[in-house]
């Protein structure tokens, strides 16, 4: 099993955290992982992208150029994600911010209203975690069963009170697929 995922959105949406948590959990599940982020110099609003690979064997190129799955967190990212997606690949679209449909017909398109679902839980900032839940359900590549323990080491103690909401966001994302 090798799952190559391309993650795209704008700075501030938590794309980089999403990618890091995805590979962190995958590593704890015994998989090989690579995570290569690229983002603009802006603190918020610039591009934020990540090439992420998880596999049960040694990973060749860490650069994802023909993704099995893509995460489209905002409208600007849709054309790129659509263009590079593998034939028959999966596109998970944040339908809260992306109101147009992809043009390609060979792709498996999953729409998840990440921002709305996150707001129901308490804050639009959980949108990336909703997306990660959806990615886990859609690909089956990373189970995320060790996420709670990972979050405890990922966040400082003062943020631990948000962990239950993060876990709820994951569940909401799973349920949306």
């Amino acid at each position: 099993m090798t799952e190559k995922t391309f993650m795209a959105g704008f700075g501030g949406q938590g794309i980089i955290s999403l990618g890091m948590l995805w590979v962190y959990c995958a590593m704890k599940e015994g998989l090989e992982v690579t995570f290569f982020p690229f983002y603009g110099a802006e603190k918020r609003g610039g591009i934020a992208r990540a090439s992420v690979v998880v596999s049960d064997r040694e990973i060749a190129s860490p650069l994802v150029t023909s993704p099995d799955s893509s995460i489209v967190m905002n409208l600007d990212s849709l054309p790129l994600c659509e263009a590079i997606a593998k034939q028959g690949g999966t596109l998970i679209v944040n339908s809260s911010l992306v109101k147009v449909d992809p043009k390609r017909t060979d792709l498996r398109v999953i729409s998840v209203p990440c921002n709305e679902l996150a707001e129901e839980i308490g804050d639009a900032k959980f949108a990336n975690m909703v997306m990660m839940g959806a990615l886990s359900k859609a690909t089956g590549a990373v189970k995320l069963d060790k996420l709670e323990a990972v979050l405890k080491t990922f966040f400082p103690e003062s943020k631990h009170k948000f962990i239950p909401m993060n876990m709820k966001a994951i569940e909401a994302g799973r349920a949306a697929v």
Partner: peptide
């Protein structure tokens, strides 16, 4: 830059 910036186990 890729070896420096990417994360792996």
């Amino acid at each position: 830059g890729l070896i420096g910036q990417m994360m792996e186990g």
